[in-house]
Design a protein around this nucleic acid. Structure first.
Length: 511
RNA sequence: GGCCCGUUCGUCUAGGGGUUAGGACGCUGCCCUUUCACGGCGGAAACACGGGUUCAAUUCCCGUACGGGCUACCA
């Protein structure tokens, strides 16, 4: 069921790697579009040349690709409302800004950044800590409202740098209904005359955003709460353009907060808490600006999606595990919470564990393959699949597959000495060596037969499982932890198993 | 400082004028088990505070406190 009237966009700035809050914004937009049968598009807001980072746009798209919620319109993706990169729309914004000046809704301002800084400092010195360029102070600044028409024309003609500022009306109340917060209002007397067009001819976020959302027929603006205060300006802009009738609806998402401490989640929290805050790895010139992502930490994309979906939203039922398609079905804006949500890494890991348990073993093996290769281990595909099957219940992250089960690949490197010395003695050794013989001579080398054979041996000799099993386990794995001993033996194969057991006897003796 | 937004277990949250305030993560006890894990069954743990309104307020209103965001020719 498709609905051409529902169009939403994800509009990031390519200033660096896309952080996890941005991913969640993209996700909510995607889910909303899917739920409503609408369109989800990507728009790159690259109007700040100073902060532009070349690789960032590619990173954003790679990330969306990894999660599997790629927009259907965007740079390099087609769509009839392009271009979808704002830098490529530069000329258009200038025209719209000029139109606003002609209609008396905006004005030229000639104050240089230095002059503005000086003005702010001067006001601060006078005890005024909140100078703003507003409907009062504009009368004392250098702009087309205070300058004569001739002077303005002269400055424009001379090529002097100028900005175009929104002429915020006096004494009005701007009220709108936010889809998550309800009615919100602002007094225009508290609002500053935002710069619409910068000295370099580029639009600011405010202008570009409104023009593009209008031209791209955006029906719902779903974005972070940091944009709530500027929404008043945006509404004023829609009015100035006389686009209010088709103005999109707004939904401001609660922010994602630090796991502990004050403030919103930042990129530095990743290093601080040893957890990912970006979807994919990002390589920067400075080591401190380089990061590993959720992917490299060993997360499955759908687990991250499920986790993120629940950071600020819930379905109102007790179901927690949702596939992406279930999420699309269940999603609704009115279930989005209002308060900021702390980033809970433990919960993220729990989601991942749940998804790994439920994942096809074949797929896990494919994901683990490159990790195994990176370690230099050489194993067959059959081995890897069986190994993943054996380990998937005791793994939280994909990287755990090579860490907690490393002895499968490289043999036993360290033994649990304490548990050995507690159990090892001459008598036990005799039984243990008989046990090796049984394994060595086993004709049906599979877990079930081996278990029967070993248990029979134990019973016939009046031994206890508790004396031999732990030693068997330690001999094979070095540790008391791990999967079923007989399944381990089957996977390791006869030669490897017997080799490990013999090596262990020697080690146990010398302990 | 000003403006705007928010506040239910440690965390994510459900709920909503009368509930034993529900679930999940984490923590913890027991069971399962040759170990670890998985799984199952339990436990501790919350309505920020003060005033109203009301027969009744955690729920509605107002304050306060606390938290968050914005306050750039950044987005």
């Amino acid at each position: 069921m498709s609905n051409p009237n529902i169009r939403v966009r994800f509009a990031p700035s390519p200033t660096g790697p896309l952080h996890i809050g941005g991913v969640r914004t993209a996700l909510y937009n995607y889910l909303f579009a899917k739920k409503m049968g609408g369109t989800f598009l990507l728009r790159i807001e690259d109007t700040d040349q100073a902060r532009y980072v070349p690789r960032a746009e590619e990173y954003i798209i790679d990330s969306l690709k990894w999660f599997g919620f790629l927009p259907t319109e965007g740079p390099g993706m087609g769509g009839e409302y392009g271009p979808y990169r704002q830098s490529e729309r530069k000329a258009m914004y200038g025209q719209y800004a000029t139109q606003l000046v002609e209609n008396g809704k905006a004005y030229y301002a000639f104050d240089t950044p230095e002059e503005l800084d000086a003005k702010r400092d001067a006001e601060k010195a006078k005890g005024n800590h909140n100078f703003r360029y507003d409907n009062v102070t504009r009368n004392e600044m250098k702009n087309s409202l205070t300058l004569s028409a001739e002077e303005t024309q002269k400055r424009l003609a001379s090529g002097e740098d100028y900005t175009i500022r929104l002429k915020v009306p006096v004494g009005e109340t701007v009220t709108f209904t936010d889809l998550v917060r309800g009615e919100v209002s602002f007094e225009t007397n508290e609002l500053d005359d935002k710069v619409l067009l910068k000295g370099d001819g580029m639009p600011t976020y405010h202008l570009a955003n409104i023009v593009d959302d209008h031209l791209m027929k955006i029906s719902h603006v779903i974005r972070g709460e940091e944009w709530l205060p500027s929404t008043a300006h945006h509404i004023l802009l829609y009015r100035a353009f006389e686009w209010e009738a088709t103005m999109p609806q707004f939904a401001h998402l609660p922010l994602i907060l630090k796991p502990v401490g004050n403030g919103k989640l930042s990129k530095r929290d990743g290093a601080k808490f040893n957890m990912p805050v970006f979807p994919l790895a990002w390589e920067a010139e400075q080591a401190e600006d380089s990061f590993l992502g959720f992917k490299e930490f060993g997360f499955l994309p759908e687990a991250v999606i499920n986790f993120l979906a629940f950071l600020g939203w819930n379905p109102g039922t007790e179901q927690e595990i949702f596939s992406v398609s279930e999420l699309c079905e269940a999603f609704s804006i009115d279930k989005i919470g209002k308060a900021g949500a702390r980033f809970d890494y433990d919960k993220a890991k729990w989601f991942n564990q749940q998804y790994i348990h439920a994942a096809e073993t074949q797929r896990l093996a494919e994901l683990v393959r490159p990790l195994v290769a990176a370690k230099g281990y050489e194993v067959s595909d059959e081995f890897l699949v069986s190994y993943c099957e054996l380990m998937k219940d005791r793994v939280v992250l994909l990287t755990d597959f090579i860490e907690t089960g490393n002895y499968f690949f490289e043999g036993v490197t360290t033994y649990d000495d304490q548990n050995i010395s507690k159990r090892w003695n001459a008598e036990v050794k005799t039984s243990f060596e008989s046990l090796i013989g049984i394994i060595e001579n086993a004709t049906d080398f599979n877990a079930e037969s081996l278990e029967t054979a070993v248990k029979n041996f134990i019973q016939e000799n009046g031994l206890k499982m508790g004396t031999l099993f732990p030693l068997l386990r330690i001999a094979l794995a070095g540790t008391m932890k791990g999967p079923d001993v007989f399944k381990m033996i089957e996977l390791l194969g006869k030669d490897d198993t017997v080799g490990r057991l013999q090596k262990a006897v020697e080690y146990f003796d010398n302990l």
